[in-house]
């Protein structure tokens, strides 16, 4: 168990190192920031001075080493566009994205698992058939379209929920949260559903098919032959066995909820890191892009590490 954990952590470190290299390479290969930062009336002296200031005059290896050392220190460089430290900008924006991601992940997992179990147990019921058909629509509609439809229905026509922004936020020492005000909570609903809908249908379909598979197993038949109640069979015996494959996919999906929040954030003008990234791309703001890349990969790697640990927690066969 311990050696397994160490191995996984080492692997995670390697992945981060490679991503760091890719992120760093952007500095050298994605255009020249000097062009963007200085106007057309620059002199060679200006260029040299800025180059030295940004450390771009040093060799590749030295630059890479400095980049890594700084990144570990939490210093992700200075945004070319805003002239402020990238770490500060991201810290400002991250709460918005993380809160949105949390809400949609809870929505996706909670509703997805429940509907999955329901449609598996009542396999031939009318409600199950309706849920399954509707879920197909959820999978096939693109995120931005769902967002726009929801805005049209709930903001424009019914005027129940806000169509953009985070509403009122409370500042908790550097972390701005929308969970504490009613307008903040209201503002989370539509983007939360938009972002989580696809994952929700995916998880639901996965739980359903896994559950159907598990219900066919001998140990379920044996449990039934021992006279156990349907409740004990479905929730105690079947559900836990369903979880192992579900967790894998769910873990990967949660990562993509954060990574692909960009579209939802654009549709809802959500002031998160996704929107920040889009703006950075438009301006070739390489430090921001590199930091975003690193941030996402750290999240993916962490989530996968947690998934691996959860596996071991759920399945005793992996412990020995």
């Amino acid at each position: 168990m311990f050696s397994f954990l160490i191995r996984r952590v080492l692997q995670a470190g390697l992945v981060l190192l490679i991503v760091g290299f890719v992120a760093f390479s952007m500095f050298n290969f994605v255009g020249d920031p000097i062009d963007n930062m200085l106007g057309t009336e620059r002199t060679q002296a200006d260029i040299d001075r800025l180059r030295a200031q940004l450390g771009l005059d040093q060799t590749f290896v030295v630059q890479y080493w400095k980049f890594l050392a700084n990144a570990v220190d939490g210093n992700l460089g200075v945004s070319y566009r805003q002239g402020r430290p990238v770490a500060e900008i991201i810290a400002e924006r991250a709460p918005a994205t993380l809160e949105l991601a949390t809400v949609s992940a809870l929505f996706a997992v909670g509703v997805g698992v429940l509907l999955g179990i329901y449609t598996a147990i009542r396999r031939d019921g009318l409600v199950s058939h309706i849920i399954m058909s509707v879920s197909l629509i959820g999978v096939s509609l693109p995120t931005f379209l769902i967002g726009i439809l929801l805005i049209y229905l709930f903001s424009v026509e019914l005027d129940w929920l806000p169509s953009f922004g985070r509403g009122e936020v409370t500042d908790l020492g550097g972390w701005t949260t929308g969970f504490l005000t009613s307008s903040g909570l209201k503002a989370l609903i539509l983007p939360g559903i938009t972002l989580g809908l696809f994952q929700m249908t995916l998880i639901m379909r996965l739980v359903r098919s896994e559950m159907l598979e598990v219900l066919r197993q001998d140990y379920i038949r044996f449990a039934r032959a021992r006279g156990l109640s349907e409740k004990a069979i479905n929730f105690r015996h079947a559900l836990k066995n369903t979880l192992v494959p579900v967790i894998t996919v769910t873990g990967l999906q949660l990562g993509s909820i954060i990574a692909f929040a960009i579209i939802t954030e654009s549709v809802f003008q959500w002031p998160g890191v996704g929107l920040l990234f889009i703006n950075a791309v438009q301006f070739v703001d390489i430090p921001v892009m590199a930091a975003y890349l690193m941030l996402i990969s750290v999240m993916f790697v962490t989530i996968n590490l947690i998934v691996d640990i959860l596996y071991v927690a759920i399945d005793p066969r992996l412990r020995s």
Partner: peptide, 19 residues
């Protein structure tokens, strides 16, 4: 079921819940 009539299945590797 189970109370008065019990059943034993063929494959002991699959008739117990592994978790």
């Amino acid at each position: 079921r189970g109370k008065q009539i019990s059943m034993i299945f063929q494959d002991p590797l699959t008739s117990l819940n592994p978790l």
